[in-house]
Design a protein around this nucleic acid. Sequence first.
RNA 1: CGGGGUGUAGCGCAGCUUGGUAGCGCGGCUGGUUUGGGACCAGUAGGUCGUAGGUUCGAAUCCUAUCACCCCGACCA
Length: 419
Amino acid sequence: MKTSNFPIFTQKDITSEAELISHKLMIKAGIVRQLTSGLYTWLPLGHRILEKIKMIIREEMNAIGSTEILMPLIQPAELWKESNRWEEYGPELLRINDRHKREFCFGPTFEEVITDLIRKEVSSYKQLPINLFQISTKFRDEIRPRFGVMRAREFIMKDSYSFHSSEQCLNETYKKYSSAYENIFKRLMLNYTIVEADSGNIGGNESHEFHVIADSGEDDLLLDESTQGMNVEIAKIKYGETDVQKIINENNLKHVKGIEVGHIFKLGDKYSSKMKAEITTKESEKINLLMGCYGIGVSRIVAAAIEQNNDEKGIIWPSSISPFDVALIEIDGHKDKLVRNFSAVVYQKMQDSNIDVIYDNRELKLGNKLNDWELMGIPKVLIIGPKETKNNIVTLKDRVKETKTELHVDNICDVILQR
RNA sequence: CGGGGUGUAGCGCAGCUUGGUAGCGCGGCUGGUUUGGGACCAGUAGGUCGUAGGUUCGAAUCCUAUCACCCCGACCA
């Protein structure tokens, strides 16, 4: 990719309205722009980050036998009335009418739609289990959107749904998702924890949340030495005590702040019973399907990752989700043909080795370019000027270690690929 | 919904108290000098001061209404 085809929207000054470091950096680095309250446009850089995260999620979903689908953003009211959530969900459910005055809503979650699909398509235990997921835009009309994409009204979420004929099968699948989620957050290189959670208005009887640990997190978590813990809602129920500080002291727990980036639920027959999603068992009995659902906040992960990985210069991407592996900076390439030609050769070499490289051929000074790519958090920067061109080398600068290394042109790809 | 704040050039802001030619920084464009960490000089373009009404000889400034955005509280991936 060349900057001539990949607009960079970095900016020096940002509005004082942004409070969180991740929100500030996402604006400065040109990842998102706000359209209006709770709604954001993802710029080219931001879109690439989202795609990297989605790819990791897809791979881990496929690895446990979950298959991708895509459901409509707009959902008919009838289904929500069946589950009783048309009333229960409240104003967070954004409702609209079509030209025939028929009622619809923007989907904040998809239990109704997927249950409707499965009840129509599945009638026998032989067709189970079924594991499906989608990565799509969700809409929740939040009371108060805030912190940029951290709490947006429109956001990108991966949601999975599983269907079973037995409790045992649901339990096994729930465990599979839990371990898949662990793999995902490990691959995202985030410091995370799993806690017991309250199932909220999604419902069901068991649930766990995945949190990225950050002081700016909105959730309060209580952890024990093994860092297996619970959120405060569960703690209050579990210990029969409303004074959180008392719970912490009496049970020797640690209090940390977390950003909820994943949530898995055992739904049981909550939706299948209300929506009459039945199957016939081996014994020719009709039973309600058992369900699980499993969410990951994709767009929120971008903000959470930045909360955990930044310095005074800007973002420092974990290598697995960096929008580019390396930025190639040419010094005054528009004035120096030799530099430009050599840069093009290096660029081509890296492309041939499938390295995600952004070639900065803008007419800017070296300092401008370096500052930009450091702000945007690219882990490695290659510099090519007259000196490098003359000696058939490049200078490699490491975002974190700040080291400068001269590499011969033949070794570039090997060193970059080593990570 | 209750409480607080902010809307002025592409971006970030000052001006408003005490009404009188609409400003600063960054960015843009032109020319020149620079050039290995956000260069300098000269010139230039760009604004119905959120919107509507009112007070006044005169309103960015005072009054009223309204809209938008942000912050604090009640809800949540």
